[in-house]
Design a protein around this nucleic acid. Structure first.
Lengths: 252, 252
DNA sequence: GTATTGGCTGACGCTGCGTCAACCGCAAGG
DNA sequence: CCTTGCGGTTGACGCAGCGTCAGCCAATAC
């Protein structure tokens, strides 16, 4: 009884026959010999090797790494150390991910269908930087930059309150827009004043005329905002910006 | 400027053009229209949709899940909750893995090339159980079972010391085996006595003759041990068991 | 005229097998 | 003798999410 078939080895080692064939195919564990009809026959050395393979695999090493170790091309301890570091990195990545997911859940629960102001908070640094570059290139104004970063820096509570409030204002303004009211119409300017106060509430100090115009520019020039606002109605982003400009002209 | 090409959208959103084509291929984000030569043309609604896609993707959701959410077939909050649970499970899996890897590193550092006694400590429960079933079926003796479980229950320090000691004994015994010395040869029995004492040191009380014979059976009948010992020399496992039986006959 | 950009459509590669599909050999039972 | 069934074999697709050629077309810049 020194030789075992595929199914026997599989049972002994607790793996599937398919796995053994796979290991043969990739050269990780070749049978001692082939019998009639290509039957795989494994001997004791193969059993031993399989056990070692399973040991390392159980630790999460990739099969090619396991192969390198068993061929003596890789120091087991070194490989495991590197693997441990990778595990650690992956774990902290999951930690951050979980935190972000939790935050998003809270945000979704607290707000309406998600306002664009909240969609982009917390993009990854690379994307974020790219967006800012794009913005700078387009608007070329430091004030717009400040409007954006300020929006980003809002407290979590403020963020949770934002979607509703914006939704409210957008709805009211959309009504005037649909009715064809000019942007300097008193009713429109009243809504815009609410908008200004909403912004100001999270601005630190009251936004200057320049800052408020910058925010208006954000609505029309940043595709992320523009796309959203134009879904409210065709040309709504432009309408909103015009109303904001008018407000700045008259009041700031 | 209401329409963008693949590369433009890619730049705006910070993804690759290939990704956009992929999303088109799987129906996740189809362009608004196709221009001359099949050029993809994206409009604002597509930009918006892409932003939502990227938001959910960034949270680690699979693309088909994202699709379900955007199609309204899946509640975003519910999906995120489930995802959070999965993240949590995965994280604790990584925790356990990292612990196992660390333990293995310690073991490898403390010992020689890894003795078989340590290889199988800490197999996953299913495999472990299967091995024990196999063992019971083969030996049908509770004492063998006890020999095995006792080996498994050793303290970490003892485990670290074991490989060296076993290696030493194996080397000495292998010399006699190669020289063709009978197993009841006094020199062979002297080495066997050392082996007995080594085992006894971790046994709790001194192993009985029955227990020691059971351990010998483990060496020849468990493929995990047999394969290893037979690598020392052909028939070495049998030789060792015979020496152990002889020792038990004469001294226990 | 041609070199450069960009865009297009395949199609393979990666990881570790699970899962058919199609076929063969051997032994027991009708 | 034939069927059934078990266990073995070799392909080959599928999965997730694109990266990465390869080969071809069109418009633009020099």
């Amino acid at each position: 009884m020194d030789v075992w078939t595929t199914a026997e080895v599989a049972r002994l080692a607790g793996v599937s026959a398919r796995t053994l064939r796979h290991y043969d195919a990739i050269g990780l564990l070749e049978p001692a010999s082939h019998g009639h009809g290509g039957l795989r026959r494994y001997g004791r050395p193969e059993l031993l090797r399989l056990q070692q393979i399973l040991l390392f695999k159980r630790l999460g090493l990739r099969l090619d790494t396991v192969a390198s170790i068993l061929e003596g091309d890789l120091e087991p301890v070194a490989a495991l150390r590197r693997h441990a570091a990778e595990l650690d990195a992956e774990r902290s990545r999951l930690d951050r991910l979980a935190a972000t997911v939790a935050a998003t859940i809270r945000q979704l629960e607290g707000g309406q269908p998600m306002a664009p102001e909240t969609w982009f908070s917390g993009l990854d640094p690379a994307t974020e930087a790219q967006h800012r570059d794009e913005a700078r290139r387009r608007w070329g104004q430091a004030v717009v930059e400040r409007a954006w970063t300020t929006l980003q820096a809002l407290s979590p509570e403020a963020r949770r309150a934002i979607p509703e409030a914006f939704n409210d204002i957008n709805t009211r303004l959309a009504a005037h827009h649909a009715a064809g009211a000019p942007t300097d119409d008193p009713a429109v300017q009243a809504v815009t004043a609410d908008h200004y106060r909403l912004i100001a509430a999270h601005w630190g100090d009251d936004p200057t005329a320049e800052a408020y115009r910058g925010l208006g520019a954000l609505y029309t020039d940043d595709p992320r905002f523009k796309a959203t606002y134009d879904q409210v109605g065709d040309g709504f982003a432009d309408y909103m910006r015009a109303a904001m400009d008018a407000y700045a002209d008259a009041n700031l």
